[in-house]
Design a protein around this nucleic acid. Structure first.
Length: 479
RNA sequence: GCCGAGAUGACAGAGUGGCUAAUGUGACCGCCUGCAGAGCGGUUUUUCGGGAGUUCGAAUCUCUCUCUCGGCACCA
């Protein structure tokens, strides 16, 4: 039984979708006013794994994740850099999509953009006004009227009204046309020099929270099975969504499960744009392979804080390499394996580890434990290869098992040739084989100096040479 | 002020009542090897922030103390 921690109840619950084995899952996407940083990667990789695991478990998943391509931040950034707002958001949307692709995040079934859903947003805001849950003001703003659903204040953040007021009162400028301090904006009147769309309340643009309600209802359903995002979205963003969506549809709950990923920190401080302590995904990709970055993220439970440092990435890379080496060992063993059915206990080993994998993942997606099991599995596989002679088919089953796991975790992708700029200058397979031949001759003549210098030369080009009992093998190294 | 997360061996990090506390990294030793790498075996690891309690039995439950981090209308 899959169990999931639900922020709404603060408990780990059995996962039962609203309808059969259909899962409607919505994850809040980025606001595209800059390149994404590693904290975003953390979030989207985590939800990618959750989505893949649900599919692995046989659920039919409809995964929707939006792009917020118009809001105050985008507009401000465009002003600062004297760029067209939509030019800017297009640029960073493309950058985001590139990053996701690099990290092996599967595209959502739908990736809706706010600017393409203005009409839907206006319709929803209108509906909220008609339902008595929102009001417009002479300034052309529309606010959600929290007093229409006071029982839902703090439902997700588990805060009291007093707590919220005390936290916010001293730090936020209160818009003077609000009826109530905690009301939030659904539609915001735009000045002449800012982007806007005509609406019943004048020229304006959507508020920050409304887009997710509108687009999730449009592409998922009025009620979601899973709504996800970073911990920092719980309040006010996700709570606002609950107010809006439930007031609009009259259905409760808006989402059955709320899943939130933990932060990525640097020196124990949250990585964020506002603190300026962030590394963009592209910066990190320049130093580490996508596989290493993804492994770094997946090797930590999604709700734990991950402290980022180069050392931590290096360690993750080494750990991952251990698994990759085993896979490569199996591939080589297959060449020399007898063509028989001797399995040396391999099928039992696989079955055991498959159920261990499912047990770990069923426990609120415990990827750390799941990967821990894989290390044990790999050690046993290495041991079998070294000491016994399993037949080809058994070894192929081992490879199949790794790729089965990889479907979910996505950590074994071969990215040894991903360094795009070195791509052209890298040494060809033929040249490598030629050098190895020369080196083998030197070795046969016990000319160790020559043999070692060839090995060093290849290593400088990122080629690792390994002499084994059954011949030489080589592979390309990546960070 | 309010709300939350956490403190596990050199480091990272699982484990939430019961065999010798997963796993990874690092370091060291051994096997293998011309050497190296990879791999395998072993050591670093009877200890889980401090104290008290419950229990036949606790890293795991209760109380208490100390410390760290995060959220409270910018945020993944």
């Amino acid at each position: 039984m899959l169990r999931v921690y639900n922020t709404l109840t603060r408990e780990t619950e059995d996962f039962v979708p609203l309808k059969g084995n259909e899962v409607n899952m919505y994850v809040c996407g980025p606001t595209v006013y800059d390149h994404c940083h590693l904290g975003h990667a953390r979030s989207y990789v985590s939800f990618d794994v959750i989505r893949r695991y649900l599919i692995y478990r046989g659920y039919h998943v409809n995964y929707v994740s939006n792009i917020t391509d118009v809001d105050d931040k985008v507009i401000d950034r465009a002003k600062e850099s004297d760029e067209d707002t939509f030019e800017l958001s297009r640029k960073f949307t493309a950058s985001f999509e590139e990053d996701m692709q690099a990290l092996g995040v599967i595209d959502p079934d739908v990736r809706p953009k706010v600017t393409e859903h203005i009409k839907d947003i206006i319709d929803t805001v209108t509906r909220l006004i008609d339902n008595g849950a929102a009001y417009s003001t002479p300034k052309g703003n529309v606010y959600y009227d929290l007093n229409s659903s006071p029982e839902k204040i703090g439902i997700l953040s588990h805060q009291t009204v007093e707590g919220l007021m005390e936290g916010s009162g001293c730090r936020v400028d209160v818009e003077d046309d609000k009826r109530y301090q905690l009301d939030f904006v659904l539609w915001k009147g735009s000045p002449e020099d800012e982007p806007g769309w005509d609406s019943p309340w004048g020229r304006g643009r959507p508020g920050w929270h409304i887009e997710c309600s509108v687009m999730s209802m449009k592409y998922c359903s009025e009620q979601l099975d899973i709504h996800g995002g970073g911990l920092d979205l719980i309040f006010p963003h996700h709570e606002a969504e609950i107010h809006q969506s439930e007031s609009c549809t009259g259905m409760h709950p808006f989402s059955k499960y709320w899943i939130h990923n933990g932060f990525l920190t640097i020196d124990k401080e949250k990585m964020s744009k506002s603190l300026g302590n962030f590394f963009t995904i592209k910066e990190v990709l320049a130093k580490f392979s996508p596989g290493t970055i993804r492994f770094f993220i997946v090797y930590t439970h999604y709700r734990s804080t991950i402290d980022f440092s180069e050392d931590a990435l290096v360690e993750a890379g080494r750990a991952r390499k251990r698994l990759l080496n085993t896979i490569s060992n199996v591939k080589h063993a297959i060449y020399e394996a007898p063509d028989n059915d001797d399995e040396c206990g391999i099928s039992d080993l696989i079955d055991e580890n498959r159920s261990a994998f499912v047990d770990s993942m069923d426990d609120d997606f415990n990827t750390r434990e799941a990967i821990g099991n894989l290390f044990v599995f790999s050690r046993k596989v290495n041991s079998i290869i070294a000491n016994e002679k399993p037949g080809k088919s058994s070894l192929e089953n081992v490879l199949d098992f790794y790729s089965e796991i990889n479907q979910v975790l996505g950590i074994f992708e071969d990215d040894s040739n991903s360094g795009s700029e070195e791509q052209d200058s890298r040494i060809s397979d033929e040249d490598i084989n030629e050098l190895i031949k020369i080196r083998e001759k030197a070795r046969a003549e016990k000319d160790w100096v020559k043999a070692d210098s060839i090995r060093d030369e290849l290593q400088e080009k990122g080629i690792i040479i390994e002499d084994g009992k059954d011949g030489v093998r080589w592979r390309r190294e990546s960070s």
